[in-house]
Design a binder for these strands. Structure first.
Length: 596
RNA sequence: GCUUUCGUAGCUCAAUUGGAUAGAGCACCUGACUACGGAUCAGGAGGUUUGGGGUUCGAAUCCCUACGAGAGCACCA
């Protein structure tokens, strides 16, 4: 039973009895650390209706509660704040109920989470990692809240940028010995190989532009006239016509890219239930435009282009079909949004996409609403901020992009270095393979935690040094704490100690109360994280819990505690903290080690 | 120019959604049974929450304004 709810009921009763007033919304807040108490009731809002001073109300309610409620053992009043303490037995009951809490019931609702959405012309980078970690974590959090989650990925596998890589490969891919470069021959991951040719295209293209400019042509014109870009455009047209040679090359190169992506996804622990390919969906949406024209949602201009007027929703007019009848970006989205819903009939649908597309999604959702789509209200753009580097923005043109695979390797190595410094030989019992697994777990833990602890909406700074730190507010700190709880449990088992189902009533140490309080907060925090699609809530929580455990660990002894009851309670506490840390980290997509 | 997001310790981030003396980490100082795991813990220093008005019992949070930063304003995706 929820202690907070019980206290609220008691307070409502107190107000009714003492003042004869009925209050509808009593809110409790956790008592600040500097004050004694578990929960605090704020009396300021009552002063008007009760015509009494805030402190007086606190005094009177506090007295009533201590006398009439068996929950409240003590109270103190500071201005308008009534701080309530609870009895030992209440703490014990609380603890017992925590240990037997049932998992959240299934909601019978499904939600689609679309994330990652890579281009097939270059490997994943740091920005994709924030996206992936967010998408994966939100998926897990929603799952923990009882939703059926469908993870989807839309691969942008067609378009002019893909043709650029293809064209460059045709031109530069043949080796001196006459063979064509492949991932095997080059030793490059497929996505990196394709990325290499995309860069080659860009270089050669720039040379051509400079040449044209040197001949006195304006830069803007030169960019449109350069032979390479014309060739790429021609290739795109051939692709759209289904030209066999072009399509064969396209398929071959895509196969390489997908193999490369798959490796990365596996390493970072992401999977998808359904992958959509733009090459298969880019023609969708035109029927939706037709439909909208018929129902008057859209209108046609004299030049034959199709628009929607969103000015009365403080947006603008938006083009949904070009005058030549071809699609624009949003046309495709009209089609794929319908497609996704028809495939899965999700009650909710999330798009994990950077905030530079805020406007696009506002427009998209408004259109779906006007088209009368039943799912429109369940659509949500999980918008996240860009990742900056200490040197400024990531710019692919300037080569300042942080590659995802490189980064994962870097953090793994950093974990190895940190372990060498910290453990002094404790790693010896691990086999080389086990060490490798562990370092990757810790490195990824550091990286994921670093990216997830910040509010997703906000722009953030990626400091490479801080991202691999293992001290302080970091993933490895939390992982370490988990390993500590496991160490305690192993030692206890060795000593033949086990945690009984029924716990004795003891007097709890302040650090124990703090831990118990945090443990009671877990379901609520997970629920809030689900409601706001906010992994950062869970990340903050896991840190608070780990920190509190380390304080507890330093303040009291566990295994050498002479009082048997205390010993057992502390053991039970360590166990539950470990489990809760593990669950929290799992929601972030971070694994925790038994030893480190 | 219009629209929009943001501005919190030297740096990176919190702040239970309007509540108490604004909290953590990093960096910088000082300490901790030679260890139930020191990848830890305790303490110190660090703030006019960008400036200025307003709303109220109460504002980092809501409103206005100035300044500063980012993003969006294609018949690109």
């Amino acid at each position: 039973m929820d202690l907070q709810a019980q206290l609220k009921t008691a307070i409502t009763e107190a107000i009714a009895t003492v003042y004869g007033e009925t209050v509808s919304d009593t809110t409790l807040q956790p008592t600040k650390k500097e004050f004694e108490g578990l929960y605090t009731f704020v009396t300021f809002p009552l002063t008007k209706s009760l015509r009494r001073a805030p402190a007086e109300i606190g005094q009177q309610l506090g007295q009533w509660l201590v006398q009439n409620s068996d929950l409240v053992s003590r109270f103190n009043v500071v201005q308008g704040f009534l701080n309530l303490s609870v009895a030992d037995r209440v703490w014990t009951d609380l603890f017992t109920s925590l240990r037997t809490d049932a998992p959240v019931a299934a909601k019978g609702q499904s939600v689609m989470v679309e994330f990652s959405s890579p281009n097939t012309n270059k490997p994943l980078h740091l920005g994709h990692l924030r996206n992936n970690f967010l998408g994966e974590s939100v998926s897990r959090i929603l799952d923990a809240n009882g939703f059926d989650v469908v993870r989807t990925c839309i691969v942008n596998d067609r378009g002019i940028h893909i043709c650029k890589s293809m064209l460059a490969y045709q031109k530069f891919g043949q080796q001196p010995d006459g063979s064509w470069e492949t991932p095997e021959s080059s030793g490059l991951k497929g996505d990196h190989l394709i990325g290499k040719y995309y860069v080659l295209f860009d270089k050669a293209y720039k040379v051509e532009i400079e040449q044209l400019v040197g001949e006195g042509i304006e830069k803007e014109k030169a960019e449109k006239q350069a032979p390479l870009i014309l060739e790429a455009q021609a290739m795109l047209r051939r692709w759209e016509q289904g030209d066999a040679e072009t399509v064969t090359l396209w398929k071959r190169m895509n196969t390489w890219v997908y193999a490369g992506f798959e490796k990365t996804y596996q390493k970072i622990g992401t999977r998808f239930d359904k992958t959509y390919y733009e090459s298969q969906t880019y023609l969708l949406g035109k029927e939706v435009v037709e439909e909208g024209l018929k129902t008057g949602v859209f209108y046609r201009k004299d030049d034959n282009s199709v628009w929607i007027d969103l000015t009365d929703e403080s947006l603008d007019h938006k083009l949904v079909l070009r005058s030549d009848g071809t699609s624009v970006y949003i046309t495709q989205d009209l089609g794929t949004t319908d497609l996704k819903f028809n495939d899965f009939h999700n009650q909710r649908s999330l798009w994990v996409v950077g905030n530079e597309q805020d406007y696009h999604f506002q427009v998209l959702f408004k259109i779906m609403k006007r088209l009368g789509r039943s799912y429109a209200d369940g659509c949500y753009h999980l918008s996240y901020g860009m990742v900056d580097l200490p040197t400024g923005k990531m710019k692919s043109r300037e080569g300042t992009v942080v590659d995802a695979d490189d980064l994962v390797n870097t953090v793994t190595e950093a974990a190895r270095t940190a372990a060498d410094e910290a453990t002094k030989g404790k790693m010896d019992e691990f086999s080389p393979d086990e060490q490798e697994t562990l370092f990757q777990m810790i490195g990824l833990g550091a990286l994921k935690y670093f990216l997830l602890k910040v509010d997703a909406q906000k722009r953030m700074l990626f400091n490479p040094e801080e991202s691999v730190d293992v001290h302080g507010h970091t993933g490895p700190f939390i992982q370490y704490t988990y390993a500590r709880t496991r160490s305690v449990m192993r030692k206890a088992a060795d000593a033949g100690l086990s945690v009984p189902a029924e716990l004795p009533v003891v007097s709890f140490h302040p650090t124990e109360q703090q831990l118990l309080f945090l443990l009671t907060q877990y379901p609520q925090r997970v629920a809030e994280a689900g409601a706001d699609y906010a992994p950062s809530y869970v990340a903050q929580y896991a840190y608070e819990l780990a920190k509190a455990f380390n304080q507890f660990y330093a303040e009291v002894t566990i295994l050498s505690e002479p009082n048997r009851n205390l010993l057992l309670v502390r053991l039970a506490l360590s166990e539950l903290v470990g489990q809760t840390i593990k669950k929290s980290m799992r929601l972030l997509g971070i694994d925790v080690p038994e030893k480190m």
